[in-house]
Nucleic acid binder design. Structure first.
Lengths: 338, 338
DNA sequence: TAAGAGTACGAAAACGGTTAAGTGAATTGA
DNA sequence: TCAATTCACTTAACCGTTTTCGTACTCTTA
């Protein structure tokens, strides 16, 4: 690899001059600058990012934490899209993305925070993780600029999919389609679930909907077996709902299967709606009506916030950014007004 | 951050001794070693990976290239699963993963290779990219240990999903279910498509199947609109096939919609099969019969090969590793023998 | 007992950059 | 005309490691 030293020799100047020329400092003559840049270019010079980082304490590298639990990290449509958008945003600003992990060599493990410190990440994004584990707690208290997705910590900026707005909009949409008996199979307990559930109740109250307790139940996210079971239960109710909301799109398929097995048609006999807006939902019949989260904006806002936190630590305030979703109108919710 | 210097002062030894003690060199007394390690631990010492990399020319960082084209990188089930497995494999060996990109700062762009050199990646994995672009060509010729997924370059190790075996197994399975009129809508031209298509023809010949030209057509991968259209064409044929193979699972849904719209049932009236084994395919009705690629093994093999290439450059040979898939037996292919 | 062999550690250079401080020459101002 | 600036560059220290070489001991062994 050609270094500044090589260039300095080739140009007959000191390496300091080379450094300053390449970094456009203004105490270098414009002729010299041009010449040095030209030579550097011809020699195929590339800055050694390790050396630079060592000296400047800036790596231009961002750590991203993805849960290592089965099927909920990289391989989840929602997170993958958010990550993709986040990645594009920060790369545009000259930052790279490295995954945070806790596996060091075969011998000892290290904590997430230790990993980050050792790698010298300028900032970190916690996209998807067990937010209640001690390791995550340690990480967010580690004084590295941080932004979290869909979870709020003290003194840490967060980008949140607006679940309150989302659920309100979705439920209102369904209400306006004439539905009055609406069941909600919500996800396992978490901050996200809390938001959606309370928004569901509040919106229902505002709309004057009566929601019997038996219309509300729980199925873990992405668990089609659980939604299948819960759906059968709902279908067997004396007073069957006209529409069922699922924890997420993927889980909705469990319910859809149960409905089809019962010989019922969607949406003619019963309506369903998901949450997330995964791609496949728009490519099956019936297309799934769902609340599409704005993954692009989520990733983008997270990236922008984090970079701002890194580059202007004093003036950037810790805040919660809520990103609205919108109803994707498939044809899984019948229009009862018609 | 506490450095070796701090430890050396605290212990009353030189930083050389600290370095050697922490790295278990055997010219340090065992007592001293133990003591230094203890102090380092208490002080919360963490090695500065930039300094280490600068000196040793080893970053323990692997660059991964993902296409930046819409919907075909991170957000694709197949690639996401491969990446996940790859990530777990290399992290277990102490390596980190950073995305390769070509966006440097807002001003100038740099090439993939330049990015890799600048970051000092020990190795790179090209998971998903436009393999025919000049930039990729430059990258693979860059003399950094490399492994590619599903594409073969000279002098570069490749891990390949065994499309020949896969298509053979899938077609044979369908044949054994009694199907003789089998159509294949294949993907757009690429090495992968070539393998599948030629394996399709060869297997068909071996099985004594007659494949009329009108049974073969093209639809880009993941393009449901295209498969929808092609499926309608196939259904309108005088001599309609009894089973249709799709480019991939996602694209299969386009076909399935077309079939349903025609009022036909799967698999009673017509059978379909996909390729990939994406998760959702197992959670809808009818569950999709497909060739499930072994993403876990693909990622693992790629990781192992790359690390071997990095750590034993002389003795590791450039090779092509083929990973077999298996038929996932859904219920979208009718058993005509019954 | 003196030469040779270990043993346990330290000094210093090096990796490839950045940057504060210094320097000599040209330019400026009064 | 001469001190004061400004300009354009160099010197040298430093970031946190690793590693070669040297050195002062202690221990063998002939």
């Amino acid at each position: 690899m050609v270094s500044m030293k090589d260039i300095s020799i080739a140009c007959g100047v000191s390496v300091a001059t080379v450094s300053k020329a390449l970094n456009d400092h203004n105490d270098i003559g414009s002729e010299t600058k041009k010449y040095i840049k030209k030579v550097a270019d011809e020699m195929g010079y590339l800055p050694n990012s390790m050396a630079k980082a060592l000296k400047t304490n800036r790596t231009y590298n961002i750590g991203v934490l993805f849960a290592e639990e089965a099927y909920s990290g990289l391989t989840h449509d929602y997170y993958a899209f958010v990550l993709d958008s986040f990645k594009n945003t920060v790369e545009e600003k000259g930052y790279d993305i490295t995954f945070i992990n806790s596996a060091k060599a075969r011998s000892e493990r290290i904590s997430y925070l230790e990993h980050c410190r050792s790698r010298g990440f300028d900032g970190i994004a916690i996209v998807c993780a067990d937010f209640y584990s001690p390791e995550i707690m340690q990480l967010v208290r580690g004084n590295i600029p941080t932004v979290t997705l869909d979870h709020i910590f003290n003194n840490v900026s967060a980008v949140m999919s607006n679940n309150v707005q989302g659920m309100q909009e979705l439920l209102t949409y369904i209400y306006e389609k004439g539905h009055r008996k609406i069941a909600f199979i919500h996800g396992a307990d978490s901050a996200v679930t809390q938001s959606r559930l309370s928004s569901f109740y509040r919106t229902a109250a505002q709309l004057g909907l009566e929601i019997p307790d038996e219309y509300i139940s729980m199925a873990p996210y992405r668990d089609t077996a659980a939604t299948y079971k819960e759906t059968l239960r709902l279908l067997d109710l004396k007073d069957r709902p006209t529409c069922i909301l699922y924890p997420d799109d993927f889980a909705a398929f469990g319910g859809i299967n149960a409905i089809k097995e019962k010989g019922l048609r969607i949406p003619e006999d019963i309506s369903v709606a998901g949450y997330d807006g995964i791609r496949i939902a728009r490519h099956i019949e019936p297309t799934l009506t769902t609340l599409a989260q704005n993954t692009k904006k989520l990733g983008q806002k997270a990236g922008e916030k984090l970079i701002s936190l890194i580059e202007h630590p004093k003036t950037t305030l810790i805040e919660r950014i809520f990103v609205d979703g919108h109803v994707y109108e498939g044809n899984s919710v019948a229009d009862l007004n018609a």
